[in-house]
Design a protein around this nucleic acid. Structure first.
Length: 462
RNA sequence: GCACGAGUGGCAGAGUAGCUAUGCAAUGGACUGCAGAUCCAUGGACCCGGGUGCAAAUCCCGGCUCGUGCUCCA
């Protein structure tokens, strides 16, 4: 079996081969913590969490690095608006990020470097770029000079220098910045009064938006690494800027072997955005769906496709996830021979994942196993595939806790429920169906659902 | 406007020429007083228009629609 990965740069799926045998260096652009994590973040880090898990399953030792851009214009804006230090804003949102990602079973990366803790490396990198003639200092900062390496332009988007100039049209006017060319981008921005700053050879200021990722990946991986991931929108300018910075600084290319970009989240067919008023934070969504139900929903579409979250779609996902849990619990005590070919389901699951991490195809196999008689082997199968790889199962401890809580809740009301059931049973024996159905409705109102079976009537909460 | 990506049954999604996946939902039937669960069965699609092929969802041309980006005071 061969793992194939879609690479944005070559625009095709390529057989995955790591630079160093058995090891993978993976860098995923992290958040700029100026507000609460939203569903777009959830999708991105969930997608790469599955990539992370699958690579490990395939035997790679993965070094996963994800940064925090913890100083940036937007953070400064929020800190001014709230009149608190910018570090409070970023820390608050980083805490929030970890909390919601943990709940969704996102495994931690190996390193979470922050811009504010990488300033010396960033300054060193900018100095090198200046020395090599790829960057220049001007009145308001240091800029990367695109014309120093024009052949690198458009590697991820296919655009040429001329196209961008034409497309930018009337918007490209003199902005009063010190850029020689409007396509140049900032490496170091000099601080305006009142803004946070660090000392540098070019004066007090802060890093530009793109340089941190280059400096951090260089620090953690050296001149080249295997996978660079991020949201689709980061291809340009952010990731193209990284190519400029890293490759010009080290003289080694390509800096990245596989560029991976996840698709976006739409809400009811519309782009999720603050201005449309359909901007969902992860925490908002938790009020309606459990973290793992949300995880199920977001993984049920391949990571590169746009995902349209509609109420129907989310309800379905939640339902399927609940079914998964009950199948898992059922499988604990089931001693019967399983009625499907688990090995072949596992094989199909693995082929789907090997085909550019197709979690949709993988989930289809999970659904097949759930629909089986949940016999011998299902527990292990689900733990391995739905649990370890897709991360969709809560831990057994949690499940046991929950069933304990359920049991206690059951004990609390068992007596009264049993009374109802005895009465209903009597009614049924007398073929008084109206009475029997009334009792069922009554119980439903109390939050008890019942099911008639061969061995009498069973009931559960919910 | 330019670039890149995408348009397959109710939803999701495989599929680079012939055997028309798969999952969920739906429908019919079985079983149940009914409901639920389960089992069996079934229908249903390839954005539009041309072209090349014995044969096209799959190749070519044109068009339409949608998404993202086009440099950080969008």
């Amino acid at each position: 079996m061969v793992l194939r990965v879609y690479d944005t740069k070559t625009r095709k799926k390529r057989v995955f081969k790591s630079l160093e045998s058995g090891k993978v260096g993976m860098y995923v652009c992290g958040i700029t913590p100026y507000s609460k994590s939203h569903l777009g973040h959830a999708r991105c880090y969930l997608s790469f969490d599955v990539v992370h898990r699958w690579l490990e399953y395939r035997g790679y030792e993965v070094n996963y690095v994800q940064n925090f851009t913890d100083i940036d214009d937007k953070i400064i804006t929020v800190s001014i608006a709230e009149n608190v230090d910018y570090t409070l804003i970023s820390q608050r949102n980083i805490d929030e990020f970890f909390e919601v990602m943990d709940k969704m079973n996102v495994l931690r990366a190996d390193h979470y470097p922050r811009v504010t803790q990488t300033i010396p490396e960033i300054i060193e990198m900018i100095s090198e770029l200046v020395k090599r003639g790829n960057a220049y200092s001007s009145k308001d900062g240091v800029y990367f000079e695109i014309d120093s390496a024009p052949e690198k332009y458009g590697q991820l988007t296919g655009q040429t220098l001329e196209m961008v100039r034409a497309g930018a049209g009337g918007r490209v006017v003199d902005t009063g910045s010190g850029k020689k060319n409007h396509r140049d981008f900032a490496l170091w921005k000099l601080a305006k009064s009142g803004e946070p700053y660090w000392e540098s050879p070019w004066g007090k200021g802060r890093p530009g938006w793109h340089i941190e990722c280059s400096a951090m990946s260089l620090k953690h991986f050296g001149n080249q690494f295997d996978i660079h991931g991020g949201g689709h929108d980061l291809r340009f300018p952010h990731h193209e800027a990284e190519i400029f910075q890293s490759e010009c600084c080290t003289g080694v290319e390509p800096v990245v072997n596989y560029w991976m970009h996840n698709g976006f989240v739409n809400i009811n067919g519309e782009k999720m955005s603050k201005s449309l008023g359909n901007f969902w934070t992860v925490r908002d969504t938790f009020e309606k769906y459990s973290p793992l139900e949300l995880r199920y929903a977001l993984l049920s579409i391949p990571y590169r496709s746009p995902i349209d979250l509609t109420p129907e779609f989310l309800e379905d996902a939640a339902k399927h996830h609940q079914k998964l849990i009950s199948a898992y619990v059922d499988s604990f005590s089931n001693e019967i021979q399983v009625d499907i070919d688990l090995a072949s389901c596992g094989k199909s699951f693995e082929s789907a994942m090997d085909d550019d991490f197709n979690s949709r195809g993988a989930i289809i196999e999970v659904q097949k196993v759930i629909s089986s008689n949940r016999g011998l082997g299902v527990e292990d199968w689900l733990e391995k595939y739905a649990g370890c790889i897709l991360g969709l199962l809560p831990s057994k401890d949690e499940l046991l806790d929950e069933s304990k809580r359920n049991r206690m809740a059951r004990e609390g009301i068992a007596e009264i429920v049993e009374e109802f059931l005895v009465e209903r049973d009597k009614a049924r024996k007398n073929k008084d169906w109206d009475r029997a159905d009334d009792i069922r409705d009554e119980l439903k109102k109390m939050g008890i659902s019942i099911e008639d079976g061969e061995d009498g009537t069973s009931w559960k909460i919910g």
